[in-house]
Design a protein around this nucleic acid. Structure first.
Lengths: 396, 396
DNA sequence: ATACTTATTAACACAAAGTTAATAAGTATC
DNA sequence: GATACTTATTAACTTTGTGTTAATAAGTAT
């Protein structure tokens, strides 16, 4: 077990600095004396640290002043527009990249289809970043860093993509390579983890300490936030819920790549099931183009053939969410990924299925950030990476 | 989301103090200069804090000196025998209490059968503590506090047993009552949580940051340790894995009290299934006395009737452990409770069932502390409660 | 203009960590 | 047994950072 570190006066200041910056970012515009009350810290400390943050361009005077009976107090705010980051979400089917500021405003975005693998994928990634970087420079703002959310198993701290079967990367030192190429701070993490962090800061998970973000798309995965931070597990595989077992018949049968649950209920499987059913019925449609969304639409229109497919899936999702609720007891479970577009058809029946069956039913919400969530998470991680942030907990 | 607090020099000292005490407890006997290297802190700070800890009787000179080429260095050790705590595990069938020191040595223990409820249960608890306290006083050691691990849902911070159906307690302010009665620091927590913490410090989970302790007895529950601390979830129900759903047929059927999984595979259910089978076969045995252990023994002796019952249970347990592994990716999963006595029959088939089916298979170990685990956890929590302990994490 | 309230600044006190040089307590060697 | 060498401990002082208090500044209401 890792031991808690000792700290010196300098780290003490780092801790206080990050606490104050955090408050300004979340509660701003806010007055200095308001921070004093919120954080139980002396005014001088707030003033000194705020001065430093202003000098570093992380905080600025909002221009607005507030009156509470005496001299007016200027309100401070997080200087979210003073810096930009480049965020990239690397997927098996596309590369989505954006230039965003620290408030999550997106200045430009690109989506590039991605059907290659190996070094070609890397080249495509570099080209995408090149483009974004060129744009970022035109804004004249300070470029804080590049954050990449990658598919597969990523070794976050080493900056290595350990194993991404779909693009055939194995132990690829992405962080090092990108750093050499662009000479900017790089962060690399799993796409689902970043998305969960993104929702915590900018999406429907704001003000939640514990949440789970479930992505149902071509596969099924979850990003887990505990106490406001990404929980990765001891071997960085926490949240690989595509591998949950829907029942005991799945025991003992080894599978490579895909997990048991995602082999039954992913978006890709829903589409595949539909193709089979429609082919059996001699449909004349262009079966290749059928997607999960198409099946949900059919269900919405009461087409009989879609009913068993969707109802089956709802069963799998109900069980999956019950599992997550029982294990993590989060404030909220967020649905994301392609299938969540049809959440209107899912949430009510799921709740009906699990209410009363488990002790506490968390809120189930739909992602508001969608595919941008990963980029939003990259913003936060880049911020953590750029200046020091601490979390202090009194044990009990 | 709770914000990280600001700290002053006093808290800085508290943080460093707890880091140093922690190292001495875990690595002791240890020399001052060794602490300097382990913790990256200056020698003077170590000397000053150690002096304070010695004055407080938390640390003592071991008497042993070490020679590394110059003046000999005295080795320090945690003064685990200078204080005792009273730990009690309140169960639906018994009250188990012990007087133990901070190293986990048990000086005396009592087990009291417990078949009452309501205020009688409370009286029995008070009597048990009375007895332990009398003994504790005879040791002449400092009594640090009383730690109670209670069944049901407990509001740890308020010290209230929210809902314990088997003994009919609802929102019972146990901590307050005990404090009034005994005038000692009281800690109250869920029995499973404390057991998990106990295994982390004194049992097979030593040096694990993330672990799950599963208790299979009259019910099924789990205690979750994340980053060395108890994870309770947002509504204090994390780890209530007795409510996991073995398959989708359990959806939609409300249950009160017992969960779906524990209604299929708890120790009590194993015994009940056996009673039924044996009654059907016209057995002359005293069916009332049959326990899960009896069924496992029969299985070990190749008695045919026991086979389907045990094999079924193994299936449920395999699925449950796979779920925990996928969700939490812990260093280790620890089996505890009555059924774990038969772990020799369980672990291998379980591993066979889940290896290759999930991405990473954690170690599965059997509790070494057994029913004492809860008391051991109470030691640590009492320690946390008595002097301040902090955990500092640099975010990334 | 005056009184009142609140914000800001400056000077100083306090807490705790870090540094450096002097001193102490050993062992090994001659 | 004296001397050299190594490491531990102590004491004095420096540095970093927070906390407090009194003086000053900037407003509004009367």
């Amino acid at each position: 077990m890792r031991s808690t570190p000792t700290i010196s006066a300098t780290e003490m200041r780092g801790i206080n600095r990050s606490a104050i910056l955090d408050i300004i970012r979340r509660k701003g515009p806010i007055a200095r004396s308001d921070i004093v009350e919120t954080l139980q810290v002396s005014l001088m400390t707030v003033i000194r640290i705020v001065d430093e943050l202003i000098a570093e361009d992380m905080v600025k005077d909002s221009g607005v002043k507030e009156w509470t009976g005496g001299r007016r107090r200027p309100l401070l705010e997080f200087n979210s527009q003073g810096h930009v980051i480049i965020g990239v979400d690397l997927n098996e089917s596309r590369i989505y990249g954006a230039v965003a500021d620290l408030a999550g405003n997106i200045y430009t975005e690109i989506t590039v289809p991605h059907h290659t693998s190996g070094s070609e994928s890397y080249e495509l990634l570099v080209q995408t970043i090149d483009g974004l970087l060129a744009y970022a420079k035109t804004t004249g703002k300070n470029i804080l860093g590049i954050g990449v959310g990658a598919l597969g198993i990523t070794y976050y701290d080493e900056g290595v993509v350990h194993w991404a079967p779909t693009i055939e990367w194995r132990d690829f030192p992405l962080k090092e390579n990108l750093h050499k190429r662009f000479n900017l701070p790089i962060i690399l993490d799993n796409d689902v983890n970043l998305a969960a962090l993104g929702e915590t800061w900018f999406g429907v998970g704001q003000n939640c300490s514990n949440l789970v973000l479930v992505i149902i798309g071509s596969g099924i995965g979850a990003g887990i936030i505990i106490d406001g931070g990404i929980y990765r597990g001891s071997h960085l595989t926490a949240g690989e819920i595509g591998f949950l077992l829907p029942d005991r018949t799945f025991l003992g049968s080894k599978r490579d790549g895909f997990g048991a649950l995602e082999s039954q209920a992913s978006g890709a499987i829903i589409a595949e099931k539909a193709r089979k059913v429609l082919a059996d019925r001699g449909s004349t449609e262009n079966l290749e183009e059928i997607s999960a969304e198409y099946v949900f639409d059919a269900y919405r229109n009461n087409e009989e053939w879609a009913k068993p497919i969707i109802e089956d899936s709802i069963g799998f999702y109900s069980q999956m969410l019950a599992t997550l609720a029982v294990c993590f007891d989060p404030d909220v479970i967020i649905l994301s990924g392609g299938v969540s577009k049809s959440a209107d058809l899912l949430i009510e029946p799921i709740l009906k299925n699990i209410e009363g069956v488990i002790p506490i039913c968390p809120k189930i919400l739909v992602s508001t950030l969608g595919h941008r969530a990963t980029i939003m998470g990259a913003i936060i991680e880049t911020l953590y990476n750029t200046s020091d942030f601490y979390s202090v907990r009194k044990l009990s």
